[in-house]
Computed example of a mutant assay.
Amino acid sequence: MPRVRELEVFRLLLPFGRRSESLLVKLTDHGGMTGWGETTAPPAKTWSRLEETLAALLIGVDWEHPDTVPSGDSAVDMACWDLWTKMRGVPLAEAIGGTRTSLMATVRLSPDSSVEGLVTRVNQQICAGYGHVTLDVRPGWDVEPVRAVRQAYPALTLAVDCGNAYTDLDQLVALDSYGLEVIERPFATTDVHSHASLQDQVAASVAVEVASPAELDDYLTLRAARVLLLRPAAFPSLSEARRAHDRAAAAGWDIQCTGGQGAGLARAATVAVASLPGCTLPCDVTQPPRQNQIVTPVVGANGGVIAVPLTQSGLGHEIDEDRLRRMTKESFHA
C-alpha cells in the first residue's frame, strides 16, 4: 500500500517553440520509490491549490489505488499511477488495460507561408515514414492547401484539424471532396448540433474533443461525430479518460489519442492510453519541439511508429532531474 513521505511540485517554463508552462509532481514513498506526473498549460489557480492542499492529501496517508486519491488534478493522478504501477512492477499501459505494443503515428503540420512550402513539408514527413498526415486548417487556409496536398499525394491518408474555428458548414463540406479520413474539432465544443449536421453531410468522420464522459454523451445521443479525439491530460484522471474511451468504443466510434505538449510525462501517459483496444486511429504525440522533453527515451515516433514501453514499470521513462531543475521557474517541497 503506497504511503508518500515526500512530495515536490515544479513549475517549468518550456524553453523551445511557443514558450509555455508545465506543472510536474514528484511523489516519493517510504522505500524511496518515485512517481511522476504532469499537467500541461496549467491554470494559474492550480499552483496555489496544490501548494495549499497537496501535502495534507498525500503525506503519510495510506491509499490502495490511484482512484482513491481525490486530487482532481491530472498531474497528481498521473504521479499516483506511476508510483502504484512501479510498486507492482507493471507498465502503466498494461495496468489501465492496454493491449498494443506499438502504435501508428500521425504527424501534425501547421499552416505554412505558402502552399508549395506545405507540400514540401508533407513530402519530408512521408520520406520519414509517416503514412498519416494531419493538416491544421483555418478559415482562409483550408481548401487550397488540402487540394494541393491531395493532388500531390492521391493515396495519402489525410486528416484536418479545424481548431474549433469554423461556423460555416459549407466550407467544411467543400473539404470533404478531397478524400479526408477525419475532420477534427470543426466547431466550438458546445455546438453539438452543428457537429451533427456536418456529420450528416460528409463522408469523413467528424472528430470531437471532450473533457468528460458526460460531454461525450451529448455527442453520442445526437450521433454528432464518429471519432473521439482523446487527450488524457484534459481529464482529471486516467480512469476518467478510460471511461470516455469505453463509452466511445461501445458506440462503435474510432478513437485517436493526442497530447504532444509538455515536458514528456504527459506524452508518455498519452501513449499508454493509446494502447487501449479502442484507440484505432494513429496516435498524435509528434507535436514539436522534442527538445522540451526531460524524459529518456524521448516520447515520439520513429519511422511513423511509436513504441509502447512494456519492459519498464510505470510510465516507462527516466527523468533527467538536472535538466528539470534548470527549467524550473519555481517549486515547493513538503
Rank of each mutant, 00 (worst) to 15 (best):
A251M: 11
R121T: 09
S197L: 12
P145S: 12
L265P: 15
A174D: 14
C162S: 09
A196E: 04
D142P: 06
W253C: 00
Y153N: 03
Q199C: 03
G278Y: 14
A234I: 03
T157P: 13
Y130E: 07
G89P: 11
V182G: 05
L265D: 08
A188L: 11
W84V: 01
T34A: 11
F187Y: 10
P111R: 00
S113K: 14
H245L: 06
V173F: 01
E330S: 14
E6F: 02
G97N: 09
I183N: 02
I319E: 10
Q312W: 12
A272M: 05
L180M: 02
N123S: 15
E21T: 13
E64M: 10
A44Q: 15
L216K: 03
Q256S: 12
S74P: 15
D77P: 11
R326Y: 09
P186L: 00
A272S: 15
Y166D: 03
V76A: 06
P66M: 02
L135E: 09
G252E: 12
A225T: 02
F187C: 08
S74Q: 06
G131A: 09
W81S: 05
Q293N: 07
L230M: 09
G264D: 04
V4L: 01
G35M: 01
P277A: 04
G37N: 09
P91S: 04
S113L: 11
D67E: 14
E184V: 03
M1S: 14
W141V: 01
S22E: 08
A203M: 13
C257E: 01
Q125I: 05
M33N: 12
G259E: 02
V273F: 15
E8L: 04
